[in-house]
């Protein structure tokens, strides 16, 4: 097993190298001079030259790439041109927000999706099954940002039940200090019920919007996996022995049906953590996605470069973890 992990980690090296190369190439392909775009048209040629030297842009491209790589190895992702904060510091500040949102979205997807899938499989071809499957098909067909806007309109503007954006109600004058950056955890640590309630209220709508696609995928997959397992001989044997139907479903069938579901949950989680750009933008969620998006608009190249590399590497590592976790759930899988 250890050997297998080492082999897989080694296999990641060329991929990560390729990611850095591609990101670097992309940013140098962008038409127009990045420095002029950064400092504005009105700056003097001297100012531009100074910044160019500062950023190492006067060096030949291969050398620039080498510096970029060496920086990455030292966890130096560059410095934001807009805020002048090191990219790695900003990543540290923002990833808890993205992580919290992704976990909430995944919880929503799993807690609704798995029961819906089981129910649809057990009551195959009933109206319940039809509703669940049509619902999940519509779920994967909807643009996430559109669903987000509709949710904001309905629950925040029209009904006024939930806050429309952000992570915390600023106007309410809470005495709250972010320690870990995970607001739910921070609120619990400080025993602040008021803040906890507010944080949770802010989390509901973006989590539903972000979680809808994984929800639909989880529900569909749970249903088909359950159907396959339920048609197998050992289930028939269990039923013939007179095992209660609920035991057949939850103990005998579900356990085996969950393996593919767990796989897809892992893969979706990787996609969520990184792909929340649209959702975070709609809900003004201060995570990595909205940060990279505003950096693209502001032409803050170090942020785009560092942020994209960070997110892509995280994505690759999560996918590897998912792969490795198969063994935990399915002892039949042998690693070589």
């Amino acid at each position: 097993m250890l050997q297998y992990i080492a082999k897989r980690l080694l296999g990641l090296v060329p991929v990560i190298f390729g990611i850095t190369l591609l990101v670097f190439a992309f940013l140098h392909l962008i038409p127009g001079d990045p420095v002029t775009a950064m400092v504005g048209e009105r700056s003097t040629p001297e100012q531009i030259e100074i910044l160019r030297k500062q950023m190492g842009l006067d060096q030949p491209l291969p050398l620039q790439y080498l510096f970029f790589l060496i920086g990455l190895l030292r966890l130096d992702f560059g410095t934001s041109i807009v805020t002048n904060v090191p990219v790695i510091v900003e990543i540290g500040q923002r990833w808890p927000a993205s992580f919290e949102l992704s976990v909430a979205a995944m919880l929503f997807a799993v807690l609704v999706g798995i029961p819906a899938g089981i129910l649809a499989a057990v009551k195959k071809d009933s109206w319940l099954d039809n509703v669940a499957m049509i619902g999940s098909l519509v779920g994967v067909s909807m643009p996430v940002y559109w669903l987000g806007l509709l949710l904001i309109y309905l629950f925040a503007v029209y009904l006024g039940w939930l806050p429309p954006s952000g992570r915390l109600g600023v106007s309410q004058g809470f005495e709250f200090q972010a320690i870990t950056g995970f607001y739910i955890l921070d609120a619990i640590l400080q025993g602040n019920v008021l803040v906890l309630k507010d944080v949770l209220a802010h989390l509901v709508l973006p989590a539903i919007a972000l979680g809808t696609i994984p929800l639909a995928i989880v529900a569909r997959l749970t249903r088909s996996a359950m159907l396959e397992v339920l048609s197998q001989d050992y289930i028939r044997t269990a039923r013939a022995k007179g095992v209660l139907e609920k035991w057949v479903i939850f103990k005998h069938a579900l356990k085996n049906a969950l393996l593919p579901v767990i796989t897809i949950i892992g893969l979706q989680f990787g996609a969520l953590l990184s792909g929340a750009i649209l959702t975070e933008t709609i809900f003004s969620w201060p995570g990595l996605g909205s940060w990279i998006y505003s950096a693209i608009l502001a032409r803050d190249y170090p942020v785009v470069q560092g942020g994209v590399v960070f997110i892509s590497i995280t994505f690759v590592l999560i996918n590897l973890l998912v792969d490795l976790s198969y063994a935990l759930f399915d002892p039949r899988i042998q690693y070589r």
């Binding site: 991929v15 990184s274 750009i277």
Partner: peptide
């Protein structure tokens, strides 16, 4: 390895 939205954004930024 790139989340698809991110890759699309990168390409679209390059080509305007």
């Amino acid at each position: 390895a790139f989340p698809s939205v991110l890759l699309a954004i990168a390409v679209a930024t390059v080509f305007g």
